[in-house]
């Protein structure tokens, strides 16, 4: 009896490491951020409870709203981008030999395995005014020098220019996992549709996509979360400029906590409050997308 109990306790040893790591390095900072969002805190000696003042501050902070609007732009762009890996996965899945499938499945994701910094910096070079690839291409096509936009240096061009990076946006986990989802479907459905003389595009629209919808929703949520938390592209390319026209919330949080803006006060607590609001947005989007999923399966 005692020995059995001991044995059962031993089983927990297998899963303890993962929980210890997650608690120490993810949960603890998460709770810390939630706590400090209610404090005036500069990371050191200024540490004073101020209730929800940090949250109130967001409503009147025009920079915060600018960054949210910019994020909305990138989120809308993401919806368009999201279609490409799915289209590519469908096309690739429908290829008739395994060799062809493997070729495209491997080569299309090559940018995934090199540092994203490289992709970002190469695109910076493509966009570079005057000597960059795109502007020299445009001028050799006869576009006059003063009509070529500055791309990353132009308030109206900077967001589309950043969203274009990585075109056609296939190299990512979405492509692989959509392909996997298609592979996981009951293959006899495809044969049945073939015998019934159903055209391929109809099959894709009415069989494939509805069947993999649950997986697509998960991928959509993950991609949206990736969008909210990723700001290294903006940090490297424009630091949010020109005139904050590419500032995103993640970068703004980074800025106010590391770079005290002008005055000596680091707004660390305020940064935490903004992070908490973005968590809430992420969870809300997740809940929204997942709830629809339940209704559909009913």
């Amino acid at each position: 009896m005692n020995r059995n109990k001991l044995k059962r306790m031993v089983n927990y040893l297998y899963i303890i490491p993962v929980f210890v790591m997650l608690c120490l390095f993810v949960l603890k900072p998460f709770l810390f951020a939630v706590e400090k969002s209610f404090f005036r805190y500069n990371g050191a000696f200024v540490n004073e409870f101020i209730g929800i003042d940090n949250y109130k501050r967001m409503f009147t902070d025009t920079l915060f709203w600018t960054s949210m609007k910019n994020m909305l732009f990138f989120a809308l762009a993401m919806v368009i981008q999201f279609a490409f890996p799915i289209i590519a996965a469908e096309l690739c899945f429908n290829l008739r030999t395994k060799l062809r499938q493997d070729f495209f499945r491997t080569s299309l994701i090559i940018p995934m395995v090199i540092p994203s910094v490289i992709i970002i910096l190469v695109w910076k070079f493509l966009y570079y005014p005057g000597v960059g690839v795109i502007s020299s291409l445009m001028s050799s096509l006869g576009v006059s020098q003063d009509k070529i936009p500055l791309f990353l240096g132009d308030t109206s061009w900077v967001k589309p220019a950043i969203a274009m990076i990585g075109f056609p946006w296939i190299a990512g986990i979405e492509f692989l996992l959509t392909f996997a989802a298609l592979q996981g479907l009951d293959q006899s459905m495809f044969e049945a549709s073939l015998i019934d003389g159903c055209p391929k595009w109809k099959r894709i629209l009415y069989i494939d996509l509805p069947c993999i919808a649950p997986q697509l929703k998960v991928l959509f949520v993950l991609r949206f979360m990736g969008l909210v938390q990723n700001y290294e592209n903006v940090l490297i390319l424009t630091q949010g400029g020109p005139q904050n026209s590419s500032l995103v919330p993640g970068l703004y949080i980074y800025n106010v906590s590391f770079v005290p803006n002008g005055n000596s006060e680091s707004l660390y607590g305020y940064a935490c409050a903004m992070a908490v609001i973005l968590f809430v947005i992420c969870f809300a989007v997740t809940a929204l997308v997942m709830r629809e999923k339940k209704e559909e399966t009913r």
Binding site: F19, V26, A33, Q229, Y231, G250, F258, A275, F283
Partner: peptide, 21 residues
């Protein structure tokens, strides 16, 4: 619970995570 941690946007936690280390 472990899977739930996948849903934590750690990119936004980068400063608290830095304070943690």
């Amino acid at each position: 619970v472990v899977m739930g941690f996948r849903m934590v946007p750690t990119g936004l936690l980068i400063i608290p995570m830095f304070m943690n280390v």
